[in-house]
Structure formats: C-alpha cells, structure tokens
Nucleic acid binder design. Structure first.
Lengths: 126, 126
DNA sequence: CAGGATCCCCCAAGATACTG
DNA sequence: CAGTATCTTGGGGGATCCTG
C-alpha cells in the first residue's frame, strides 16, 4: 500500500523535494515560533546570505508554506510566517531534528571510519 | 534549547544534509523492509538510472546508513540493506511520507494558484 | 547483472555590488 | 533593511557506452 508511496513520480515525492535543498527545512524551522523579519531569520540561522534567504522564502511561498506580509507604514518592514500548511510540516521536520540529536554522532563516526585508513591494509578510502 | 538546533553549522544539519538530495530518502525507503538487490531497487523506485543508484548507495554507505553484501558464489549477486543506524532513520522518513499523503494536494494547489493568472489583473506569476 | 568511465547540463548556492 | 542584478562554480543527476 504505502510501500511504493515514495517511489517514481508519485505524489509523495513532493515532500522529499521540499526538503531536498540546503535551506528550506532550516528556514521553516527558524519560523517555527512566529513571524520573523528577514534580518532576524539571518541572525537565527547564520551562514545564509540575504540573496539565498530571499530565494528560499520565495520557494516556500510558491509552495504555500510561507506567507509574506509587508507593513504599510513607510518603513521597509517585512515579515514572514508559516501558513497553516507550513505549520503542519513542523512535525516531520522535528522528527528529523530529534533523530539528528540522537544519531548525529554515529553518522560522523561512520564518516570518519570510512575515511580512516584501513587498519589492515593501511589504505585510506578518501 | 532545541531552538537553534537546526541552524548554522550545528550538528543537527547533518540530518538535513542526508535528505538534501533527490534520491537518498527514496532509496532508504525502498530498503525499508529488507535487503534488496540493485535491480530490485530500480524496479521499486522507477526513474533512477543504474549509475545514480550506485552513487546514492555509496553515499549512504559512507554515512553508515546502508550496508553492502556481495555473495561469494560466482554470480554477480549483490545486496544492500539498512544498517541499525539506517533503520532508525525510517521513522523520520515515514513522518515525511505521511505528511505528503495528507498535504500533498494542498502543495500542488498552492503551486497552481501561484502560477495561475491573477483573477483581478489577469496577470500570471509564472 | 553490477557498476565503472565519460560527457553534458542545470541550478542551488556563494560572493559582490547596487537600489529604494 | 529588503531586495535585486551579475557572475561564477560545484556537484547532483541524466544519458550512453563499456566491462567483468
């Protein structure tokens, strides 16, 4: 039933695609507890340029996950927030985050093991 | 606490990176219920070339999520299976899949709405 | 069948500079 | 501060051919 759900051009691939880039998930997460201005997002996230943040927000907007609101007072104040749909994605994202905390070390260990020279042949894979 | 967990160069980003490409998640999912041969994986998944599948499996192997086993009988029989670590990732992946089934339509609707000409201005955004 | 070797394309993402 | 405009690049991913 759900077996081939994630496969081929199935609709379920949509969700994978939504998280299949560097920043979508991170930005959604940064918006988890309320509206945020771009400058705030950049502070919270760190390491993301203004240009890339804007691109990411546009992508999320396009997919109905994020909502943009420009305040009408003269200032150039803008806020982004999760839509109802966007909020529903927080649960899966959280599951990923929890997993990372529980198993991140193991992944790093595996990577190092893969790179480390083989104790027998003293041959490095990397 | 977990607030800035997903941000910057934090370890939690590891998990996002693991799912930040087209095939990792899909292949992990295709391996969910036991060892599979490459040809089986390609059938189940659909739309993935032999080369890309191999690359993906190597990536997953490198991160300790997948295990490769070559049978020693003369045949060129090979099987891949999830490691213990890999299996722990199934829960988060499943959460994503469930979400896709529940909200995939909404995403597609949002995309179409974003592309459709504005009823007022008859201007298309795409 | 497994999977390596090549060639090519596209685009997310980075850096930088500029406008309202 | 918000956002755009350029230019560049790295690498994922597709297609094709070839070998053990």
């Amino acid at each position: 039933m759900t077996t081939d759900a994630f496969l081929a051009d199935c609709r379920a691939r949509l969700a994978f695609d939504l998280l299949s880039n560097t920043w979508n998930g991170v930005v959604l997460w940064a918006l988890r507890d309320g509206p945020r201005r771009p400058v705030e997002l950049r502070e919270r996230i760190g390491g993301i340029s203004s240009k890339v943040l804007t691109e990411t927000l546009r992508r999320l907007q396009f997919n109905g996950l994020v909502d943009r609101q420009a305040h009408r007072d003269a200032s150039s104040r803008v806020e982004y927030q999760l839509t109802a749909l966007g909020r529903t994605l927080l649960a899966p994202i959280d599951a990923i985050g929890v997993w990372a905390f529980e198993h991140g070390d193991e992944v790093m260990a595996a990577q190092e093991a893969a790179c480390a020279p083989d104790p027998q042949s003293a041959r490095s894979t990397c």
